[in-house]
Design a protein around this nucleic acid. Structure first.
Lengths: 188, 188
DNA sequence: AGTATAGGCGAACATATGTTCTCTGTCAAG
DNA sequence: CTTGACAGAGAACATATGTTCGCCTATACT
């Protein structure tokens, strides 16, 4: 009939918030959109929309959720999918480290200009020294203007090959955009 | 006062549909959600929701859009971000090829188990033969059970290194999942 | 004791939502 | 010229939406 509030300490409260975020995240990745307030009610096991409203407001004040000007939820940290950890030699992530892990989306990390980006498969081994082996796939951004030192895809004598772009003067219009500084490609 | 329909031939019709999909895609990537029917009306320059309903139904019959059981639009080809093309040697994509290009999301391509996937930076050069150079980032899926021949991240004498897993008998629990067959890693 | 606070329920409200209906004008085919 | 198909407008409808208010209970703090 009435609500029986179960008080909890700080860590329990954090666990509660985290599990709620996980629930919303699961809904988002399953349905391709953010849940409505009544749907959040089902996720949180709240039978009242006003309770959902308060809970969402709390999550919003913590910066986990953001609303539209129309009140609709927009995915912010929800959309990000991969946790980022340290180096391999530094040791593998412990559960404690996972808590502090930052998350990001591979799409957002690797793609700058969505319309001008392509995926190509490499068949030659001309760039094997740079870690690009035959069979790898490369992400190409043809919207960027190539800088000297970049790896570019250029037409040489009617054939397309991957080369370093070293000096100016060549009429090359397509480059391989480096998502990380000094690491000019992504092979997989 | 009334609608003046401008009839158009086949290619013009395709252009119209494509521009509408582009409009919806732009809305999705800008707002993080699919537009409502009234918002689609603004995108399509339709002042009536029923016209939007018909237009959406047409797009739906072509498989470009899919609806919930609740009538809400879910992103399908909209979410995908990168066009996939042929090999480098096969020649660079012409505008005609771009039309036929398939699109996919890097997240969906590279990540199987979202909760168990991490991003690690490589500092050693133990796997340089496989194209994994120092400074590269690798995608690790610790939810998969390693197969022989996979590249795994294992603890050897208290240190974490990347090695090939060749035979059984080692107590390794974390592997590097190969998103493409015979290409067991992604470096960038 | 009493008071305050936090979290939840339920009702109410204005608006937005998807859906269906009829109607109007334009074009192409008969 | 007539007919039918097509695309859009406009109104109507049932439901879903986000938001606000008042009331409740259980704990925490004087």
């Amino acid at each position: 009939m009435f609500a029986y509030t179960i008080l909890m300490n700080k860590s329990q409260e954090d666990d509660k918030l985290k599990s709620r975020i996980v629930g919303i995240s699961a809904f988002f990745h399953q349905n391709g959109r953010m849940p409505s307030f009544s749907e959040i009610g089902e996720i949180f096991h709240l039978s009242s929309k006003s309770s959902v409203y308060k809970a969402v407001g709390k999550l919003e004040s913590k910066g986990v959720l953001i609303k539209d000007k129309k009140g609709k939820l927009i995915p912010v940290s929800i959309k990000s999918t991969v946790k980022v950890l340290g180096t391999v030699e530094a040791g593998f992530p412990s559960p404690a480290e996972e808590e502090l892990a930052d998350t990001l989306s591979l799409d957002d990390l690797l793609i700058k200009n969505r319309e001008a980006t392509f995926l190509l498969k490499v068949s030659g081994d001309s760039m094997s020294e740079a870690g690009i082996l035959p069979g790898d796939m490369v992400i190409v951004d043809k919207g960027e203007t190539p800088k000297s030192g970049d790896i570019v895809i250029a037409e040489v004598d009617g054939e397309w090959t991957m080369k370093y772009l070293k000096v100016r003067g060549e009429n090359v219009t397509l480059i391989l955009v480096p998502p990380v500084k000094n690491e000019p490609t992504c092979s997989l």
